[in-house]
Design a protein around this nucleic acid. Structure first.
Lengths: 247, 247
DNA sequence: TTCGATTTGTTCGTATGTATT
DNA sequence: TAATACATACGAACAAATCGA
């Protein structure tokens, strides 16, 4: 017996880490798509030639990383931006009473452009590489709370258009996933306080130079490829940015 | 055999969850102190009357929550603010190049006071309960980057004084832990952009009304008891607040 | 509604590997 | 080197949730 996926002769470290790598590779290759179930544990264990306990340890780590989702009696599913699960994983604005609510998003602008040096470096593309840029305004309870300036590499999003962005009926990351096979799995954010630029202030109905929270985000796929650069200006007069740490 | 800690007849859910509760209770009761090793796995498994696998599953979760720390060949240790491990778990300011460095802290003020309504609610103490308040300025590379206004319930920190704060040779949370048996294990932060108050601006060498990042922090112990309320004003001209999400 | 098949969750026990002292 | 302690891996049995016949 020597099935192609068999891992039992692997010698470069713990077996379960190798199994995890194989699973990750299959996920990156979209062998199983977001929202779909991966094969049952006994079947995967047999395929890789490991015990079910070893397989489960590999899956455990992917579940902890929000890459897979287990449901007893149903199966193990590839994380997707379709449902509610990832809805607030990447949206951190809350009301002053602590209420979490997803914003209404309005597309304000869409254009083709070329990457500046900073954006090119963040997105790991060549300077002046073609990119798509669009601006959204975010609304919570009828109030304008922020502006997102989003830049993505044009090569990764062929056919992304103003219409496509307008017609989506879900989050932007769901559109990336469903429309372009790009799954945002991790974000890296740095925050600072700045004076509002004139155009942003106008969109938010504020005086220019009002203090705004500026969030610089880079979004990554499972294989750590950066796929989106985003600057968000947030009016924190009536809302806040929340983060928990330690457990 | 019916040892007092035996858990084998427990019926209210998974055994390992009950074992985890017992471990947590022992940690709260300071049966094992920060920095110390808990008993070896076989010994704990015998004490609770469970298999070693079940015990390990309980410990796994506490390790994932940064409550315990495992070291192969040495033992399993209670998390402590003494070492480097928790150093950057609760300090999120980085340089513009992404460098993480721990700030120099200067005590600017220390006073006894009474809790206002907002602080009292955050700290779960009665309104006008006695509290201790102190202000620190934070310095990175010779530059003043922020001001912390810290409020703690006086009842939890008997004997905390200006001298005590000045003479510490480690982080404030290490002082809480070592001097008062209070271990901060989790923080909850909300962030907003504000115009600098005059006194803070002066300390930071900025014009009044410069935009500052205001971080409102509540710190909790293992049993979710709030033990510190903190407002931090951060000058994000040369530094940033960093957070990662998703994995 | 009931029942059986499927799938993950929990628990047990054992053996062996690896790091530390 | 020997003893100790956690890490990895195996396998088995039963429990609990889900789903369709």
């Amino acid at each position: 017996m020597n099935r192609p996926d068999d891992v039992s002769l692997f010698t470069g470290g713990p077996l379960y880490k190798e199994v995890k790598r194989r699973l990750t590779d299959s996920l990156e290759a979209a062998r199983w798509k977001p929202g779909e179930a991966i094969p049952p544990e006994p079947q995967l264990a047999a395929r890789y030639g490991v015990s079910i306990g070893t397989l489960r340890k590999a899956i455990d780590e992917l579940v902890a990383e929000n890459v897979l989702l287990r449901q007893q009696g149903r199966g193990t599913f590839v994380a997707s931006h379709r449902g509610e699960a990832m809805r607030f994983l990447f949206f951190s604005i809350i009301g002053q009473n602590g209420s979490r609510q997803y914003p209404e998003v309005r597309l304000e602008r869409f254009q083709r452009a070329r990457a500046g040096d900073a954006v090119a470096q963040s997105l790991s593309v060549a300077p002046r590489a073609p990119v798509l840029q669009f601006r959204n305004s975010l609304w919570l309870g009828g109030e304008s709370v922020g502006v997102d300036d989003i830049t993505v590499p044009a090569a990764l999003f062929p056919g992304l258009s103003l219409t496509r962005l307008r017609e989506r009926d879900n989050t932007i990351y769901h559109l990336y996933e469903h429309g372009f096979g790009i799954s945002v799995m991790r974000i890296d954010e740095t925050l600072r306080a700045v004076a509002a630029p004139a155009d942003v202030a106008a969109l938010l109905g504020l005086h220019a130079a009002s203090p705004l929270l500026l969030v610089r985000r880079v979004a990554f796929t499972l294989n750590e490829r950066p796929v989106e650069f985003r600057l968000s200006w947030v009016n924190t007069a009536m809302h806040e940015y929340r983060r928990e740490a330690g457990s």
